[in-house]
Design a binder for these strands. Structure first.
Length: 209
DNA sequence: CACGGGATCGTCT
DNA sequence: GACGATCCCGTGT
């Protein structure tokens, strides 16, 4: 069924368990995000991520350890998915990191389409392949078939329809472009933190400014 | 290419 | 009742 070779390795709990959400956000660049919903398999290489760190990050939903029905997912164990609705339209996909009750999460913002591109084109109703297919957290989720029903999944479980893989590619620090996060002006001084990470020069990210 | 607005609804105050 | 971790399309240049 799934296209796999011996050097494809599922990312396990320990990958996500660390305290340093910035380091994990960078380490996710070049890893593969895979979805397989009802035998509809597709995958892409992660090229853009963003770090959110409760309780001290004003841009994080869990700022000041805010606990609500929505944010509760961010306090779960490392490797849990956090998917929420943004602007009433877009489903944004995050991965929870750090130990339980420490609300860190990483927003996956863009992938380079790799396997079953036709399926992603169909979900987006695109006729031709271009970077807008998966550049941006809302459209990426749509292409991968991710919605808020996939909130709270254990991405490290072999049963999960969403998972992450290393396929032997390592992105060096010198290949990473760090810039401030967008759309978080309300977060005041935290909005300046350079916690948006991209693979330098990669055409599948949103264009650098 | 830059900007500006509308879509659309869950979440929090 | 206001607003948002976005996107797309229209207008003007």
């Amino acid at each position: 069924m799934n296209t796999k070779s011996f050097n494809n390795q599922r990312l396990n709990r320990s990958f996500f368990s660390g305290e340093d959400v910035v380091a994990i956000s960078k380490a996710l660049l070049g890893k593969y995000l895979v979805t397989n919903f009802e035998d509809q398999y597709c995958s892409g290489k992660i090229v853009e991520t963003e770090a959110y760190r409760g309780p001290d990050d004003k841009a994080c939903h869990a700022y000041n350890n805010l606990r609500t029905k929505r944010t509760e997912t961010m306090y779960q164990q490392a490797g849990t998915s956090y998917v929420y609705l943004c602007y009433g339209i877009h489903h944004l996909f995050n991965i929870v990191t750090a130990k339980e009750n420490m609300a860190h999460a990483i927003l996956i913002r863009a992938i380079e389409p790799v396997e079953n591109v036709e399926l992603m084109l169909e979900r987006r109703q695109f006729k031709a392949l271009k970077s807008q297919l998966t550049a941006g957290p809302g459209v990426m989720s749509k292409a991968l078939g991710i919605n808020k029903n996939h909130n709270g999944l254990d991405l490290c479980s072999l049963q999960s329809p969403i998972w992450l893989e290393s396929r032997g590619l390592d992105i060096k620090e010198s290949e990473i472009l760090s810039t401030p996060r967008v759309g978080v002006a309300y977060a005041k001084e935290c909005a300046l933190w350079p916690w948006r990470f991209r693979i330098k020069g990669n055409k599948w990210t949103s264009p650098a400014k």
